[in-house]
Design a protein around this nucleic acid. Structure first.
Length: 331
DNA sequence: AAGCCGTGGGG
DNA sequence: TCCCCAAGGCT
């Protein structure tokens, strides 16, 4: 690919992608500071960014609405125990994000007078706010010109400008430089650009089976021009079955359902004579309700080694995702 | 600095 | 069915 083509692409891409975005971008409730502002608060945008860390938009939507209604300001969330945040997090996954969001709310109240900080530097001091989230909040909540780089943007850049099917396994300095170069000088336009490229990656330039027929910059795409070559490596899929994460998840599912402490022994071995959620002869499991029994049964079906259960229980306690009293474990 | 940390929808 | 992976962060 010649540099001439690349330079042409870099000139044409902004308008084409932004026009596409204005016509095809989703009307998400946390989108504001963008042309059609819905009046979402910085806190609302911050909640969305936490929830969107590794969880798809479609699953975030209802949880975000619920959180906004329950905790409309950082102070509202900070006033409640972290366990409430974890429970309200529901099944979005990675519950430590709920914990960090709560901790961030506390920090905002204590250090920023209850207002979400408006600079990338201050934002990144908050728990759970890293390079991406700090840039995203600064850009989308405060209209700042920041280079926002998420997995979608990395993929679009890799294809459109580098001719690769996928970005490198880890974020490189070259990618950061490219993203910086591509960012429009104009502040307002840079905000739209960030959102537009992200949206293009989410809706069209997807990881699997990209919809190149719908792509506004297909004619400029280096990857397409190169004949859509295969990825140079095969992504390492994360193991799941038999892992601590699976066991932790199963334990968490029980704790989320339980309104009262769950005796530690119930996590370690299946109660004698208890055959499952509908089993008879169970000791005093009636306190929990069917949801608790169902998830307890699911945990035991994993048949995780005793040492693994112990390790996971200890890990959850250490992480503060669970707490223990004489009566048992709670969120 | 690889590996860990949940969950569920879609191909 | 199984496998992939999604607006990452932290250690």
């Amino acid at each position: 690919m010649s540099t001439e083509i690349t330079d042409t692409s870099r000139r044409l891409a902004p308008r084409l992608i932004e026009d596409w975005f204005l016509a095809n971008g989703r009307d998400l409730p946390w989108r504001t500071a963008l042309p059609h502002s819905s009046g979402c608060t910085p806190w609302g945008i911050m909640i969305s960014e936490f929830m969107l860390q590794q969880t798809p938009v479609i699953r975030v939507l209802p949880a975000w609405e619920a959180w906004m209604n329950r905790w409309p300001t950082p102070a509202d969330l900070a006033a409640e125990p972290a366990s409430e945040a974890v429970r309200a997090w529901g099944r979005l996954g990675y519950p430590r994000r709920a914990q960090r969001l709560h901790a961030a709310a506390v920090a905002i109240v204590e250090k920023h007078d209850g207002a979400v900080p408006d600079t990338r530097e201050a934002l990144q001091e908050l728990p759970g706010v890293g390079a991406y989230t700090s840039a995203a909040i600064a850009a989308f909540a405060f209209g700042r010109r920041e280079s926002v780089v998420d997995t979608n943007i990395r993929r679009v850049h890799a294809r459109l400008f580098s001719g690769k099917a996928l970005p490198a396994p880890s974020f490189t300095a070259a990618e950061a430089r490219l993203a910086e170069e591509l960012l429009p000088e104009d502040r307002a336009e840079s905000v739209t650009w960030n959102a537009a490229v992200m949206e293009l990656g989410a809706l069209v330039c997807t990881a699997r089976s990209p919809k190149c027929e719908e792509c506004p910059v297909a004619a400029q795409c280096a990857w397409l021009a190169a004949g859509s070559p295969e990825p140079e490596y095969t992504p390492r899929g994360q193991a799941w079955h038999g892992t601590d994460r699976q066991v932790r998840g199963a334990i968490l599912a029980v704790l989320r359902e339980a309104g009262t402490p769950v005796p530690r022994e119930l996590f370690l071995e299946r109660p004698d004579g208890w055959d499952g959620p509908a089993g008879t002869g169970s000791p005093d499991l009636s306190w929990g309700g069917s949801g608790v029994l169902h998830h307890l049964d699911a945990l035991h079906r994993l048949k995780a080694p005793a040492e693994q259960r112990e390790r996971c229980l200890a890990g959850l306690l250490k992480d503060g995702l669970a707490s223990e009293s004489d009566a048992g474990l709670t969120l």
